[in-house]
Design a protein around this nucleic acid. Structure first.
Lengths: 138, 138
DNA sequence: TTCATATACTACATTATTGTGGTATTTGAT
DNA sequence: ATCAAATACCACAATAATGTAGTATATGAA
């Protein structure tokens, strides 16, 4: 019951870049700092650039930069960029036809919790995350 | 953000058995009723019997019976029987060292939601589920 | 005792996620 | 123009979850 590893990686990278903002980071530096598998992180950064969350600068002295202010990048956007966000709206028992109108037996209990989670993702920006980065060891 | 398919299967089977309690169901009947892959469901039922949630009766005219009253079987027990329940207690950002004392940046917001979910699983019995089985098409 | 029909077990197949390797392409500094 | 150093791309490897096949074993009814 958590975000995918890919989402977690993405949040950590973006957070690191936000922590010391407006600087160009080559992927190699991010790999070393965050200890995420080299090729996987590079691919992830390309994905994030295609979704307008980072900007990629090719060629020598290139790298990646945040494309928005940390206050305007929300966890939800990052998760939606790297995995299928629909998953987070699904029925906890897996009934595709489950809805407010046609609820599964757990719907009334689960839906509010699910909504809280989605609101958490939607309302939490990378700026919020970076306010207390202690555990992230930047 | 939902239970694993295996957990969902398990809940549906147990719910079906609770809906018409104290009857012996051969796996073949459960497979047909619930449209879950034959061998996968049989293996799942064996797992559930090893965890004392159902009782298996071998040989001709055998099958599976609930081993407790539906009021005493909780979603949490079923999930814990078929997947690693620790997963549900984990940090949303994946930090293994994240805790109340050493929180990740999302911990304060996430922990209460996570606790609500766990309470939902712990406090909801199969009897509760079966009260409104409409969507389950029993 | 035999037999039909049930569960138990073992190994393999498929799929999705995560991780790796090699090469092509881009581009600023020289 | 060339080169170093960066991203982009493509194909494959490893792992975990889910699904399938075949066989062994159990047991009540006849």
């Amino acid at each position: 019951m958590n975000l995918s590893k890919t989402s977690q990686y993405a949040i950590r990278v973006i957070s690191f870049m936000a922590y010391d903002n407006r600087q160009i980071y080559p992927a190699s530096v991010l790999v070393k700092k965050l200890k995420i598998s080299d090729k996987y992180l590079k691919r992830l950064l390309t994905t994030l650039s295609k979704h307008g969350i980072v900007r990629s600068i090719q060629g020598r002295y290139g790298g990646f930069v945040l494309d928005k202010k940390p206050e305007n990048i929300f966890i939800y956007d990052i998760v939606a960029a790297v995995e299928n966000i629909e998953k987070y709206y699904g029925c906890i028992l897996g009934f595709s036809e489950c809805s407010d109108e046609n609820p599964c037996p757990l719907h009334e209990k689960w839906a509010p919790i699910r909504d809280e989670l989605i609101n958490l993702l939607k309302n939490t920006s990378i700026a919020d995350v970076v306010k207390n980065p202690k555990i992230m060891k930047f």
